[in-house]
Design a binder for these strands. Structure first.
Lengths: 159, 159
DNA sequence: GGGTGATTGTCAGTGCTACTGACGATCAGC
DNA sequence: GCTGATCGTCAGTAGCACTGACAATCACCC
């Protein structure tokens, strides 16, 4: 009976002849595939700029905060500081950012844009925004904004 | 604190406190962290049952479709058939499912629940559903349902 | 001053997930 | 009976993110 209920809910969308795909309604499935799809679209959009989505995330934070330490960027993005090392390595190898020792605290590296790096960032950000727009294009504008709000709500539930 | 000092010096577009920070509004960030958080909550809820979220996904499909081949399950979940091998291996090692050669097509393995396996599945599914409910608890019921619909919409945009 | 504990960046190692490419066995159509 | 496709399997690989350790540095306290 529980299996029938699940089956019924999943089959709410009538099966078209050429599309035997029955959508799963589980949040794990939905979130995983949504993220996967956005990652693919973003990767394609960013490919001409030589950066990937994770690196762009770093650049967005850098643009917001201004020059700052690796640790601060990592905290803001909710990733580990050891993960940040390779990320900055890659961006520095592409001359998008530079590390420089902090004068006030010599344990820190200050990470900041190069001149050309900031130009590239602006272009890449536009491309990524366009990919996001295409990603949510099945939704009305209001629904797309609501999706963001809902995701923020479930994430920000921090205790 | 030092990050604020740097921020103040290098970038004075600091917003009012409490305003959503821009990078928190990027879909890549939102989806990644939403998925991460749900994965954690689901893992904790499923821990007593000895299965994880990916394995439960397999079981849900098995419950929906009845006994089927590994390939069919993989297709339904949108994962590779080579990935399915280890997944079924693990479930079989726990005696939740069994493989048996198909009579009609001897290339195939038919995967089906064991008796105790189906009981465990029902319990684990309840625990996972409860975790999902807690995950979306910051949202109204209607908003939570809308979230599912919106995610389905952006996923189903297949070309 | 000097000692103590915390912080920062780095690196090696590990775990998890999912893929590609290959293989033998088997099937379907001609 | 051939040929091409499908299924399950395995080895190898790649991306991502973590833990644990380390040296350098800082902040605090006596």
């Amino acid at each position: 009976m529980s299996s029938e209920a699940v089956n019924e809910a999943a089959n709410e969308v009538e099966n078209a002849p050429g599309q035997p795909r029955v959508e799963l309604n589980r949040l794990g499935y939905l979130l995983k595939h949504a993220q996967q799809r956005l990652t693919e679209m973003t990767a394609a959009a960013l490919e001409p700029y030589g950066v990937n989505g994770r690196e762009l995330g770093v650049l967005v934070v850098l643009d917001q905060m201004g020059a700052t330490s690796q640790q601060d960027v990592a905290r803001r993005l909710g990733i580990d500081r050891t993960t940040m090392v390779a990320l900055i390595d890659a961006l520095e190898a592409k001359s998008v950012v530079v590390r420089r020792p902090s004068a006030e605290d010599r344990r820190r590296n200050v990470v900041e844009f190069t001149e050309s790096g900031h130009g590239l960032f602006r272009q890449a950000l536009q491309a990524s925004d366009e990919a996001e727009r295409r990603f949510v294009s099945p939704l009305e504008d209001a629904a797309a904004e609501l999706l963001r709000e809902q995701l923020r709500a479930v994430i920000e539930e921090r205790d």
